[in-house]
Design a protein around this nucleic acid. Structure first.
Lengths: 126, 126
DNA sequence: TTAACACTTGAACAATTATTTATATTTATA
DNA sequence: TATAAATATAAATAATTGTTCAAGTGTTAA
């Protein structure tokens, strides 16, 4: 029975061993990289991107978002739950209406960086 | 049979109509928001985040990445394909070895913004 | 108290996706 | 030319996920 290491190791690793080890030492913790991926997973959905974009413009209630995005209140509510858990939105209750707003000033920055990438790649021709 | 609009519209929309309409006008195109979500979807996987982070440190071949991340060459190759399609990495061939490297200077910026969010939320207590 | 409203939640379903396994391709070497 | 090395790819599987549907809160108003 072969070991994992033995299975995947190939000759070029001997040549590149120093490089690989140097990178390994500089790598952030497993936990940090996991959290980072989890955060981007939240941004990786059209509905949530739209919600965040909308909330960056104005505070809105669930029903407003449902009409704006032409979706079910339930679907919006489910996604707001995800955004809440990721600490990206906060809310305040006013009677039976729940108003949501952004809970992070970096969202616009992250979006802008993303758009820069998209636009750059676009005029380079896809 | 009720219409979609009629189904989801609720009383508060009448009050918030102006706000919702204003936001609707300012919203980026459907296509832009879709592309943005697609980009973040690529960042939303631990393996890909690790690969990008590693390639930001040094150019590496598929085999190096497999050893570094303790994963199958096949798995790495599959993810590199995704990153290639998203124009986040580029490659050069040297004999039978294929060296991959970053194809975008904004990746580090996006990661940093993400980490700022994570760390901020962390000391606020989860 | 009852009914309507705004919203939340849980289960079910369809769709997507990351990894594995096995096979194919390309290049270097014996 | 035959073999091995480095990588790519195709199909299969398991796991995750977004939306819908139905039922459930909690708040307001009649």
């Amino acid at each position: 029975m072969k070991e994992r290491d033995e299975l995947d190791r190939c000759d070029c690793n001997v040549i590149h061993e120093d490089v690989v080890n140097a990178v390994r030492e500089k790598m952030p913790s497993e936990e940090n990289l996991y959290d980072l991926a989890e955060l981007f997973k939240v941004f990786g959905d059209t509905t949530r991107v739209k919600i965040l974009w909308a909330l960056d413009e104005a505070e809105m209630c669930v029903c407003d978002l449902a009409v704006l995005l032409n979706m079910t209140q339930s679907a919006i509510s489910h996604q707001l739950r995800v955004l809440k858990q990721a600490r990206l939105v906060k809310y305040r209750k006013e009677g039976k209406i729940v108003y949501y707003s952004l809970d992070d000033e970096h969202i616009k920055n992250i979006f802008d960086q993303g758009l820069i990438h998209i636009n750059e790649k676009h005029w380079r021709g896809v």
